[in-house]
Design a protein around this nucleic acid. Sequence first.
DNA 1: CATGATAGTCAATATAATTGACTATATGGC
DNA 2: GCCATATAGTCAATTATATTGACTATCATG
Lengths: 152, 152
Amino acid sequence: MPDEPAIQIPLPALLRHARHTYGAAMRAALAEGGYDDIPGNGLYVIGALALGEAPLSQIIRELRVSKQAAGQLVDALVLRGYLDRQVDPADRRRLTVTLTERGRAAADIQIAARMAIDAELAAWVGAEKIRHAREVLAALIDIGRSGEPGSD
Amino acid sequence: MPDEPAIQIPLPALLRHARHTYGAAMRAALAEGGYDDIPGNGLYVIGALALGEAPLSQIIRELRVSKQAAGQLVDALVLRGYLDRQVDPADRRRLTVTLTERGRAAADIQIAARMAIDAELAAWVGAEKIRHAREVLAALIDIGRSGEPGSD
DNA sequence: CATGATAGTCAATATAATTGACTATATGGC
DNA sequence: GCCATATAGTCAATTATATTGACTATCATG
């Protein structure tokens, strides 16, 4: 790999590879525990649901995929025992998605793997720079939102 | 009013969404110019080749996909007029991939879109924090490399 | 000049995402 | 209350992308 700091590697490429560090670590930890049947975006969904239940429609928007794709993804995760779906009694169009026990176990492993990376990272560069990085990432996300057709 | 979020959004999620800002902006700019037939990882390949030619094997390693997938991706990009392939005369197993004129034009648009985001970002958070963010991302990438089971 | 490693292809298959057409529920104007 | 419209999600078909396995060609080494 080019260890030349002379030119600046494009930020999108850095983001891509940085994200891979988390993805690979999480997948490895999950596979270790027997959770080796989680499809690509499944990590995102499980990670999001670890913070609490969510309506499918929210998952759709966060993933930025078609609702059909999100539906299929959730189908797969339900089929493999990670998620439950239940109709929201307040609005019976709406599906509320939650983690099963298996899903919770997978989420825990995933979170532990993430926190291990986080800790290693903090030891490497310090908490201050990580805060700055978070700020930069949040700004990027805002920039993306402002330039979107859905922001009206 | 300290607007610190009650919970910290996981870094991988931030990375995902931040990257999307670039991806969406680049795709929009390219589509505007008539370059609307670039497959998913094509942006990465074109962006990488904008810095100079590269052997296919390097693209394979950087993308972290199977060589077949990378081959198909390059196939598609050659077919659509973005890339040229030529056999390396020094090592005739090796394919050197370069941008065509159309590919160069697309790369220029893509880079302009990236730099527009970069500029907006810098105006928003300042150069200092961006340097810190780059440092953090580089550290994450290193962590990923060190935790890898050999280089495939 | 045999052996093994590297670079890439071909064919088949699997996985994932999209589009288009549809059902069911809810909301707001009148 | 009732109709029009919007929202939430499904079903089916297709396209796009990636993977695995088996193979060819070239190169490097002893």
